[in-house]
């Protein structure tokens, strides 16, 4: 039961993007279409789940004083691996995500979960936490991606639903990201019935 709780928490109640407001940089940058958003979500999930796993596994052998450098080594190892794999097997996606895949290293969700959760909790809970947080991140990122692509380019996942002439280009430009994310945050707060 408690494992399910670890999983659930990241999706809505502590959604990293819309509630904790961390990891916003890639969210703003790669949410201009749904495919990019989904690709980024997978990359972050890969790194987050594995780094939570490894940090939790080794939490007894990592000395407290140098835990942060060690977290960063672990995280950057997984980020680099995912970067190579994407370049090798998904070159088009890798090209459109560009520098934001290597930048997962500095995404605060991952270091944040390592420090706040995985370093203090058993392996299974940490993996569940990683999965939950990844799902929450993916949910937020893909929702934003779908909304922006639909309103800004008239398509969803690349399928043209209406002519681009009717689409408001501002939605796939940076301001569209801020407007969408702000409205989604407000809606989620209203749903949870409390104001930050």
């Amino acid at each position: 039961m408690s494992l399910l709780k670890e999983l659930n928490r990241g999706i809505i109640a502590e959604n990293p993007v819309l509630r904790l407001m961390i990891g916003l940089c890639p969210v703003l940058a790669v949410s201009n279409n749904a495919v990019n958003a989904l690709g980024m979500s997978f990359a972050v999930a890969f790194v987050l789940i594995l780094s939570n796993l490894v940090v939790s596994l080794l939490r007894k052998v990592i000395p407290d004083e140098i835990r942060i450098p060690i977290f960063i080594i672990i995280i950057s190892t997984f980020v680099t691996i995912s970067d190579y794999i994407m370049k090798a097997y998904f070159p088009a996606l890798s090209a459109s995500l560009g520098v934001f895949v290597p930048l997962i290293v500095v995404n605060c969700i991952i270091l944040g979960r390592a420090e706040a959760f995985a370093y203090k909790n058993p392996v299974l809970s940490s993996v569940m936490d990683g999965i939950g947080m990844s799902l929450g991140f993916a949910l937020a990122l893909v929702s934003i991606g779908v909304i922006r692509e639909l309103l800004g380019a008239g398509s969803v996942f690349g399928f043209q639903l209406f002519s681009q002439a009717y689409a408001a280009t501002i939605m796939i430009l940076p301001p569209g990201a801020f407007i969408t994310i702000g409205i989604l945050m407000a809606a989620l707060n209203k749903m949870e019935n409390k104001v930050l």
Partner: peptide
């Protein structure tokens, strides 16, 4: 400004 960015 929004209209200019959307339908230049």
């Amino acid at each position: 400004a929004m209209l200019l960015a959307s339908w230049p």
